[in-house]
Amino acid sequence: MERTGRTRRVGITTTVPLEPFFSAGATPIDLNNRFMASEDPVRMIEESQVKGYPRNICTWIRGLYTAALDMDGVVGVVRGDCSNTESLLSTLSIVGIPVHPFSYPPERSRDDIEREISSLCEFLRTDPESAEGMADTVNGCRSLALEVDELRWKEMRVKAEEAHSVLLSTSDLKGDPEAWKAMVDGIIDASRNREGEKEGPRLGYVGVPPIMTDLFPTVERAGGNVVYFEVQRQFAMPEGGDWMDRYLEYTYPYSIENRLRDIREQIQKRSLDGLVHYVQSFCHRQIDDIIFREGLDIPILTLEGNLPGKVDSRTRIRLEAFLDVLGGEAL
């Protein structure tokens, strides 16, 4: 990597340990958010196809490819998220971008995660001891995001979209923990004067973040309240332990049993009436739908998304029908 310090922009494909980035003075950039926030995400997908990416590969991977092209380096999670990331890294590598594969260890052992983090530190040109020095900063931000989550499900004083965005953005803290913290403080302050909302079924959202840009406001308009954001909340590492342990407690990259346990707990705690399981077209996680339906005793609506954009009418019809059934009004 040629650039140094904060000017060194390193793309990430999903949540990875952030402490090494900040101790190395590198700016982590979640490529998913960069792709979605770009002026024309559909165009970014097309660019990957021009390079030869197949049309029937998950849209996230195709968008991530284009979003990564001007990065100074990319850290991709090749175990525990999406195997397509391996090929994504290879195709970035051949155009000269330094890449690093990160694996959440399938055995979920402390030794393995330490080894992975050390190797990540080496790539970023820092070491685990220096990285630990950033643990309080990162942890402080995550706690603040979890506070927003509580303001959502306990008091309903922040909107679903706000809670979703804040939790989601803990993946890279927008590259700047201080600025991120100021933004979230603003959201918390603004919520103080608001009335708590409101009637309607309480929903949980499980699965990867949606590619639709207005899913949460759409659910709200249809009369549903999303008060649980499974994977987004996991990005904020809700469980305790030292900074490395948190990456073992993080449920998403490991066995689905851990996710089920977390979801079951939250269904009870947050008094949920139903779940929306979001799946991305062409993603292996669509298969997990079977496990959720078998293992969770709650009505589930599965929604599938492909391209970025607003919620389409087919999805809206499903959503409204689901809320109607949950509402329990007699036929």
């Binding site: 019809i317 409204e320 029908a321 809320l323 109607d324 059934v325 036929l331």
Partner: peptide, 9 residues
């Protein structure tokens, strides 16, 4: 009304 309700009714 949602379609599923309309058709079922």
């Amino acid at each position: 009304v949602p379609e599923i309700r309309a058709h079922t009714v």
